[in-house]
């Protein structure tokens, strides 16, 4: 069985580190793993998506419509954008943070109201998280990514110790304590 996790957000939010954290934890758990990242242009504040797939043997590194077991969204609008990629019966975690795309900033369009309700209306189970609050509580707004990983980690069958070890390996040493705290806050939510 191959499982698929999609991490979506806005360039600059730290989705790449989140996918690396997943990669590290899954490898430690003995899975075959593929992680497909986005580098380059879209990292400049664009919509970004990273795919994580694991199982006995993984072929494709990417996830297509209707295939993701879990979507971890760093932003509300991005959750709605990538919802079609969720498998029927899959789970979605949404950071309630809103980041205006440029067309909203410049007043051409509006940030839609009730994004999370619209996702719920499709019958999908949504786990809402105020990750910015968790990150601030842990000590820095930059820890949003690791806090969200904590929430998602709880939904996997990987033991917590493995996650903790992986956090230590993945984040810069200077910020280990802070990130472990953020991870914990997410995990225990």
């Amino acid at each position: 069985m191959v499982k698929s996790v999609m991490i979506v957000g806005v360039g600059g939010q730290g989705t790449l580190l989140a996918s690396r954290l997943f990669g590290a934890a899954l490898i430690k758990s003995g899975y075959d793993v593929k992680v497909s990242e986005v580098h380059g242009m879209s990292q400049r504040g664009g919509s970004v998506v990273t795919y994580v797939r694991y199982g006995d043997k993984v072929n494709s590194p990417i996830i297509e419509k209707g295939e993701a077991d879990i979507i971890l969204s760093f932003e509300q609008l991005e959750a709605a954008r990538w919802l079609p990629y969720l498998k029927i019966g899959g789970k979605i975690i949404v950071n309630t943070q809103k980041i205006d795309p440029m067309s909203v900033v410049s007043g051409e369009t509006e940030y839609p109201e009730g994004v999370i309700d619209a996702i719920k209306a499709t019958g999908v189970k949504v786990k809402e998280v105020d990750a910015l609050k968790l990150a601030v509580e842990a000590g820095s707004t930059k820890a949003v990514n690791v806090a969200l990983c904590g929430v998602a980690a709880k939904m996997t069958d990987i033991p917590k110790e493995i996650w903790i070890e992986s956090v230590k390996e993945t984040v810069p040493p200077k910020f280990t304590e802070l990130n472990l705290k953020a991870f914990d806050l997410g995990y225990n939510l």
Binding site: V10, G11, M41, S42, Q43, R44, G45, G46, S47, N59, S60, I62, E64, K65, G66, E67, L77, E78, A80, R81, L83, P84, Y85, L86, K87, I88, P101, M102, S103, V104, T109, Y111, P112, G114, V115, A118, I119, A121, T122, G123, V124
Partner: peptide, 28 residues
């Protein structure tokens, strides 16, 4: 895989979509 599934087997996975207008988010 979806392109190939569709072109060769004529199959497509079911998917959901939320009833909101999602503005594009190009890089800035």
């Amino acid at each position: 895989q979806a392109t190939i599934r569709k072109a060769v087997l004529g199959e497509e996975f079911e998917s959901l979509s939320a009833d909101v207008n999602v503005p594009a988010r190009p890089p800035v």
